[in-house]
């Protein structure tokens, strides 16, 4: 399970890095074809050594195919807004910022967010745990953090209220409306990371967002684990709202549970699966299931109401047990 998740995350990062190289090759192709026509011909001499190697590799691979243009234009973009075979898939936050800051309903774009909306309405915040490139980097940072703790260094562990992210979402949406400019792409980590990767490969420069991501990863290491995702991310807020109606839920089987708190420690989002408090934030990453020594956590298809019923059952059972213990 974790292997599958890691593979998907790595694939996303790989695609994120590969697409700019593919289009850098596209630029060079154009420059070669129109060398005398445009001054773009100087592009060919502008590449770095390692870029040269990769572009030569792409050149060799595409030389054998019949229609390179078709292959190049098959995929473009980033998790913020990706275009696959002419179909666009975008982040729900992009639709929010377009609708609020732009003040217009552009139906083709609103339709393009449907895949992610349906996915998170069925499975919860899966975008965060399975696809988001920032989450991937944060997990590496998190490994380092756990290593620190092993060697006796104790990083801070700051907790805020979970609804802070909804306030941030609302405040920034209001700001976008007043300013008439999309403000989310400047601070939403998947958008920022993909832009900086693109900038660094395509133009050879990095922007302000690069320092923003470094800042986030550093605070991730020192201040609080996954604080951005838990308390601040506006995209995470939308996914959490959609995830409240999810069908796939992590459910505790009471008979097997020994109340060892391993799962609560393992959860990167700081949720409490042992106390049945996963709420709408769970991204179904399966880390709690992995660490559970008794295999007491399982995926179940269950509605919101079903889970509520189960939790009520659990608490009544617990009360019964305590009564029995006291009676004995």
């Amino acid at each position: 399970m974790q292997f599958v998740r890691r593979s998907i995350q790595a694939l996303v990062v790989l695609v994120l890095v590969a697409i700019p190289f593919l289009y850098l090759y596209n630029v060079e192709r154009y420059a070669r074809q129109n060398f005398s026509y445009s001054l773009a011909g100087k592009q060919i001499s502008d590449t770095e050594w390692f870029q040269r190697q990769i572009l030569d590799y792409i050149d060799g691979a595409l030389a054998k195919t019949e229609n390179p243009d078709k292959i190049i234009s098959a995929i473009s973009g980033s998790p913020w807004s990706i275009n696959i075979l002419g179909y666009n898939i975008s982040d729900p936050l992009a639709a929010v910022t377009l609708t609020i800051a732009g003040g217009n309903f552009y139906w083709p774009f609103l339709l393009s967010i449907l895949p992610l909306v349906i996915l998170s309405a069925l499975l919860g915040r899966v975008f965060c745990g399975w696809l988001c490139p920032f989450h991937f980097l944060a997990e590496i940072s998190n490994k380092l953090r756990r290593l620190f703790t092993k060697f006796g260094l104790k990083p801070h562990d700051i907790h805020l209220k979970r609804k802070t992210k909804f306030i941030i979402l609302g405040a920034l949406a209001g700001f976008s409306f007043v300013a008439g400019v999309s403000i989310f792409p400047h601070i939403y980590p998947p958008a920022v990371i993909s832009r900086e990767v693109f900038n660094s490969i395509f133009y050879g420069t990095v922007g302000f967002g690069f320092f923003f991501i470094i800042f986030l990863l550093f605070t991730e290491l020192t201040l609080s684990e996954r604080w951005w995702c838990r308390y601040a991310c506006p995209g995470g807020a939308i996914y959490a709202l959609l995830g409240s109606v999810r069908i796939l839920r992590m459910v505790r089987i009471e008979d097997r549970c020994t109340l060892c708190v391993e799962c609560d420690d393992a959860c990167p989002f700081g949720l409490l699966p042992m106390s049945d408090k996963t709420g709408m934030e769970c991204d179904n990453c399966g880390l709690c299931k992995k660490v559970c020594p008794e295999a007491a956590l399982e995926y179940r298809f269950m509605t919101y109401r079903g889970e509520k019923k189960l939790i009520a059952e659990h608490s009544s059972n617990r009360k019964k047990k305590t009564r029995q213990v006291r009676g004995a």
Binding site: S76, G77, S78, W80, S81, N83, S90, A94, T97, L98, A101, G102, G103, N104, Y106, G180, V181, S182, P185, H186, A191, S194, R195, F198
Partner: peptide
């Protein structure tokens, strides 16, 4: 244009 652009760099 500023209202519509979501800065996706496509």
């Amino acid at each position: 244009f500023l209202k519509k652009c979501i800065q996706c760099f496509l």
